[in-house]
Design a protein around this nucleic acid. Structure first.
Length: 357
DNA sequence: TCTGGGGTCCTAGGACCC
DNA sequence: TCTGGGGTCCTAGGACCC
């Protein structure tokens, strides 16, 4: 006896950060809006987090250096990332979505997977349910989203991206092959720039090319990833919709406004990052064992150095002392540093460690 | 193009234990 | 004496996600 075919939704909020900004400040509507780093008249060094559709018409896209966005769209409205606000709106939306499925999985700040298998009897009902969700979100939050429906997470995710904004795309199992085949491999989850390039070298551009490739060669070339790629290209994804378990690491990074070799300044910044990380650790009631510092030099060469302590702790002094020690080897008078970061991992719940608290 | 910040997962080598 | 193999933990780097 085979199990019932799954029906999975992927919900993706449309240009979330700028949509929230537009909602809070309606005068922004119709203008090109870019949320991200301060452009500083074209000299800023961060990237674009999100931009609305008006800004996209100028060629601006997320992840792009803010300096480039400025050149493409100097008349745009540039706003800083108001993460606290987006998080608040996000948790309201997730609260709405969570009521619908048997299984729910938040994916980043503005996306979610929902397994609605037991809630609908076919795709017709699934689409009706998706409309209901979109309406509820729009009514309560004045925000639109795009929803993809498919037999697994992979297909649902690609489907939600198919029609945007305010889209709804359902791909039944029997339609998966034709739906995926013409799309570029880059659309697959876990295929980023590097993997795309490697695949291109062996003549694979579309998901269809990948689906027809010799699976043994893919496994030989890409290892476990190769097997996974072949399955994904054929529309196969057995991964479950699963609520994220506990956090595995907490970190803070900062890119300096100007590259610096001033070790006193660097160590002071490191202390500040340690304090912020420590605050999170306490709020989440955790104890950590491993401390990692990250350094990026002016040429973008990036290193990490970590130490696992012989004890577990949640004390700020342990964190500060360890990060300062780990940082020493990177402080060279002739090498300017662009970014420093602090991360803790290897957690135990503090409740179980009463002796330390 | 001159590249943020917060995460997760994977790989590969080495230490160390039995 | 010049060599094994499995398991686990640690470290560093890299790819990828939003």
């Amino acid at each position: 006896m085979s199990e019932k075919k799954r029906i999975i939704f992927h919900v993706d909020m449309d240009h979330f950060f700028t949509a929230v900004e537009e909602r809070e400040c309606p005068e922004l509507k119709g203008e090109p809006v870019i949320v991200g780093a301060d452009p500083k008249g074209g000299k800023g060094r961060g990237v674009v987090s999100t931009c609305n559709y008006e800004a996209r018409k100028f060629g601006v896209s997320s992840g792009m250096p803010i300096s480039r966005a400025w050149k493409l769209c100097p008349e745009g409205i540039y706003l800083p990332v108001n993460y606290g606000l987006y998080e608040k709106v996000s948790s309201e939306i997730m609260g709405i979505l969570r009521k619908y499925p048997d299984k729910f999985e938040q994916w980043g700040i503005d996306e979610a997977f929902l397994d609605v298998t037991s809630k609908v009897k076919d795709y017709e009902e699934a689409e009706a349910l998706a409309h209901k969700m979109k309406n509820e979100i729009f009514k309560k939050e004045r925000l639109t989203c795009s929803i993809g429906i498919g037999p697994n997470k992979l297909v649902a995710k690609i489907a939600s991206d198919f029609q945007k904004p305010d889209g709804l795309t359902a791909v039944k199992e029997e339609a998966v092959e034709n739906f995926l085949a013409p799309l570029p491999v880059r659309k697959l989850l876990w295929v980023g720039r590097k993997t795309e390039q490697k695949l291109k070298k062996i003549g694979i551009k579309t998901i269809g090319d990948l689906a027809n490739y010799d699976s043994t060669v893919l496994t030989e070339t890409f290892g476990v990833m190769g097997t996974q790629l072949y399955l994904m290209a054929n529309g196969i994804d057995r991964s479950e919709v699963q609520e994220r378990s506990e956090v595995k690491s907490i970190s803070r990074d900062i890119t300096f406004e100007e590259d610096t070799a001033d070790s006193e300044f660097i160590l002071k910044t490191l202390d500040r990052l340690s304090e912020e990380v420590h605050k999170d650790v306490l709020e989440q009631n955790l104890c950590f064992k491993t401390v990692t510092v990250k350094v990026r030099y002016e040429n973008f060469e990036t290193h990490t150095h970590s130490k696992t302590l012989p004890f577990i702790t949640n004390r700020l002094q342990d964190l500060k002392k360890t990060t300062r020690e780990l940082m020493q080897e990177y402080l060279k008078p002739d090498r300017k540093i662009r970014l420093v970061g602090v991360r803790v991992s290897n957690f135990t719940s503090a409740r179980k460690q009463k002796t330390l608290v």
